[in-house]
Amino acid sequence: MSYKNTLITISEDSKVTSGKVPIIRNEKHTIAYIEHDLINNNPYKFTQDDVQFKTYMIKNQIEEKNADELREQFFSKPKACFRASPLVKNHGWGIHYNNQGKIAIYDAKSEMYNQLLNQVDITKLKGMRSKRK
C-alpha cells in the first residue's frame, strides 16, 4: 500500500516528541537508521516500497544484481506500511507522502511538520502504537 498526499504523524505513545536521529547499534545499521538515512538524504525521491526494498538490501548486505527479481520476491508477501516504522514509533519523525507517493521525513517539532498537520487537503494518519491500550 502506498499513500498519496498523506502525513503519518508520530505515534501517540512515542517516548520522544521531536526527531531523533537513529543510532548504529553494535556496529550494525538498524532499520530505523537505514530508513532515516535514505529518506532524509533523498527527500521526495523514493516511494515507501523503494525505501523498504533498499533497506532490506542494505540490512542484508545484498548486491544490486538481480534486483528486479529480488524485489518481486520481497513484495510477494505483504509488508507493513510506514505507520509501523520505528521512525514514527520511537524517533519522533513524521512521514509525508506527496501527490506522487514519494516520501520525506519531518521532525515532529519542525515548522514544516506543523504546516502539514494544519493543511486540510492532506490526510493525517497516526503512527501505530508500540503497545496496546
Rank of each mutant, 00 (worst) to 15 (best):
M128C: 09
M112D: 12
I103W: 02
Q100K: 15
G94R: 00
I10L: 05
G92H: 05
P22T: 03
F82K: 00
I24G: 05
H91T: 07
D107W: 02
E111K: 15
V88K: 02
T30G: 06
N118H: 09
C81T: 05
P22L: 04
Y56D: 03
F75L: 08
I105M: 07
S11F: 02
S2I: 13
Y33G: 02
L125Y: 09
I24Q: 08
L117S: 06
K54F: 01
K89N: 04
L116W: 07
I8R: 01
H29R: 11
Q48H: 10
K45G: 07
I122W: 08
N40M: 01
K65E: 15
N26P: 09
Q61C: 10
N118E: 11
N114S: 14
D13L: 12
A84G: 04
I95Q: 04
P78V: 14
P86N: 01
H29Y: 11
N90E: 13
G92A: 07
G101I: 02
D49P: 03
E111L: 08
N60G: 11
K133C: 11
N66P: 12
T30N: 05
A80Q: 06
G127R: 06
L87P: 02
P78F: 12
N114A: 09
K20D: 04
T9I: 07
E12Q: 13
K126D: 10
F82L: 04
I105Q: 01
K54W: 00
S18K: 15
M128R: 14
T123M: 13
R71P: 04
G94P: 03
P78S: 15
P22G: 04
D13E: 14
N26M: 11
N118D: 10
E69K: 14
Y33P: 01
K28M: 09
I8A: 06
R83T: 05
L125Q: 10
I10R: 00
N42D: 00
Q61M: 12
H91W: 08
K109C: 10
A108G: 00
Q100G: 10
A108L: 00
V51L: 04
K79G: 02
T55D: 02
P22E: 05
I24W: 06
D107Q: 07
Y44F: 15
F53T: 00
I105A: 06
I34Y: 00
S130T: 14
T30Y: 03
I58C: 07
Y44H: 12
E72D: 14
Y56N: 01
E111N: 13
N42W: 02
D68M: 08
T9D: 07
Q119M: 08
N98F: 13
E12T: 12
T47W: 11
T6D: 06
H29Q: 14
K77V: 11
L7K: 05
S76M: 12
Q61R: 14
E35F: 00
S85P: 04
N41F: 03
P43V: 05
A67N: 15
G92L: 01
I105S: 06
K65R: 13
G94M: 00
Q115E: 14
L38W: 02
H36A: 03
Q100V: 10
I8P: 02
F53Y: 04
M1T: 09
S76G: 08
K4S: 11
D49M: 05
R132T: 15
E64M: 13
S130P: 09
A80S: 07
T123L: 10
Q115C: 12
P43N: 01
S130M: 15
F74H: 06
V16M: 08
P43T: 05
K102L: 10
G101N: 04
A104Y: 09
K109A: 13
D13M: 13
